[in-house]
Design a protein around this nucleic acid. Structure first.
Lengths: 216, 216
DNA sequence: TAAAAAATTTAGACAAACCTAAATATTTTA
DNA sequence: TAAAATATTTAGGTTTGTCTAAATTTTTTA
C-alpha cells in the first residue's frame, strides 16, 4: 500500500482539483504545511507510481488510480466523522483532527462494515457527501447564502470553511445543517445579511454568508 | 507525543515483561520482526526519554511513565477489538491486525467515549482485561486447561496463543469464551485431553490445552 | 576456568520525508 | 518584449528507523 504521506498528498491534490484544472506546487505546499521543494520530491515519487500526471512547472492532476485512492481516503474520513458525531456525540467542530488520523486505517472491509453499521449515511456532519464503497457520490447543488436575494431562502446543507472557529460560531447562532433560513434584508453599508430562521432573526457578515451553503 | 515505532517498542516491552523480570534485545527483535541492532538503537532513544531503564547488555524494564504509555496503548487496542467484534460483527480471529493500527489513534477523549459507548467492557474478545481510563485492570486468575485434573473443570476465559489459526480452531470446536468445560479423560500416550462441554465431547492436544485458559 | 558460543552493541549505510539555499523556468509588468 | 517578480526545481543536508558486518560482552560448556 501507500505511505501516510503519499495518501495525504493524493487527498490534497483531489481537494485542490475541485477548484481548478490542475494543482500547483505552491498550493500543495500551503495546504500540506510543507515546503515547495518537499512537494516536488513527492510529486516525482507519485508520478513514478503513476498516481498523478506531472509535468515539471506545469502542475499536477490525478490519474484514475490516484483519484480512486484519494476518494477512498475521503470516504473513510467522512464516515469516521459521522461515527464520531452520531455515535460518540462529538460536536461537528471537534472531529476533523481525529478523522485525519482515522482515515488512514487501511482495512476496506472495516470501513464498509462501519458504513453499514451507521445505515449508509449520505452526508457527513458538515454536509459533505460520503462516497459509497465504489467511490460514487452525488454532490447536492448548493450555493452560498451570499448569492441569494432578499426574500429568497433555503435549507442549510453545507459549509465552505471547516475551521472549528467558524463551525462554533454557526453552532452558537443556531445555523446548523438542516435549518430552514430566509434572507429578510441586506445591509447596504457592508452587505451583511439578515436571516430569519425559526422565528428568530440572525445577522451575519458577508464573510459568513459566503461560507454558508444552502440548497437551491 | 511518541512516534508509532516508539509506541510499538513500549508495548512489546510491556508484553514481554509479563513473563520475565527484564526483557532482552533478542526477545524484542523477534517480537517486533526486526534486527537486534535496530532494537539497541531504539532502546537508547527510549532510555534518553526516560521511558525505560536500560543498562547495555543487561536488558530493559519500563519506567512508570513508560508503563503508563504502554498500558494506554493496550487499552486502545482491546477497546477497538471489542468494538470490531461487538459492533461490526467481526470474528475474534479477524480483529488483531486492524486493532494494531487503531491503537495508535492519539485522542484519549475518543477512546474514553468509545469505552462509554460500549458500556465500559471489562474484557476484550479474547478474554484479556481492558485497562480503564486510569490504567487499572484486574486480571482474573486463570490456568491452562493442561494444568487441571480429570473431573475438574471451569469456564473458558482466555487464550495464550492469539494467532488466527488457533482461534479459528477453537471456534470450530466450540471452545469459545464463556463456555463451561470439564476434563473427562487424559490419554496416557500423548497426554491429550478429553473435554465435555454442552453434552458434547471434544478431544484436544496437549498443545491446545496449554493455550486455553479457564477460571479456577 | 579458559575456550567456544551466543547475545549485544557499535560502525557505517540506506530510504523516506523533510529542510535551506541556490539555480532555473515561467509569468507579470512596465 | 526585456527586466523584475514569482514559482518551481535541483543540490546538498538532516532525522527516523531500519539494515549488514564487525567488534565486544556475557554466558555456556568442556
Amino acid at each position: 500500500m501507500n505511505t501516510l504521506a503519499e495518501e495525504n498528498y493524493l487527498k490534497s491534490i483531489y481537494h485542490l482539483s475541485l477548484n481548478a484544472e490542475s494543482v500547483s506546487t505552491n498550493q500543495m505546499a500551503a495546504l500540506l504545511n510543507t515546503k515547495a521543494s518537499s512537494v516536488t520530491d513527492m510529486l516525482k515519487k507519485l508520478a513514478e507510481k503513476e498516481l498523478i500526471n506531472y509535468t515539471p512547472y506545469q502542475g499536477v492532476t490525478l490519474t484514475a488510480p490516484g483519484e480512486k485512492i484519494a476518494i477512498n481516503i475521503i470516504r473513510k474520513h467522512r464516515l469516521w466523522e459521522f461515527f464520531l458525531v452520531e455515535k460518540l456525540n462529538f460536536k461537528w467542530d471537534e472531529v476533523h483532527e481525529m478523522a485525519e488520523e482515522m482515515e488512514h486505517i487501511s482495512s476496506n472491509e472495516l470501513i464498509d462494515r462501519l458504513d453499514k453499521f451507521m445505515g449508509f449515511p449520505k452526508y457527513d456532519p458538515h454536509g459533505d457527501p460520503i462516497p459509497d464503497c465504489d467511490g460514487k457520490f452525488k454532490t447536492h447543488d448548493l450555493k452560498p447564502v451570499s448569492a441569494i436575494d432578499v426574500n429568497a431562502g433555503g435549507v442549510i446543507c453545507g459549509v465552505r470553511d471547516h475551521s472549528p472557529a467558524f463551525l462554533q460560531y454557526l453552532e452558537k447562532q443556531g445555523l446548523t445543517i438542516g435549518k430552514q433560513i430566509c434572507v429578510t434584508d441586506i445591509i447596504e453599508f457592508d452587505r451583511s445579511m439578515v436571516l430569519k430562521m425559526e422565528n428568530k432573526t440572525v445577522q451575519i457578515s458577508r464573510e459568513v454568508a459566503n461560507n454558508l451553503l444552502i440548497t437551491l
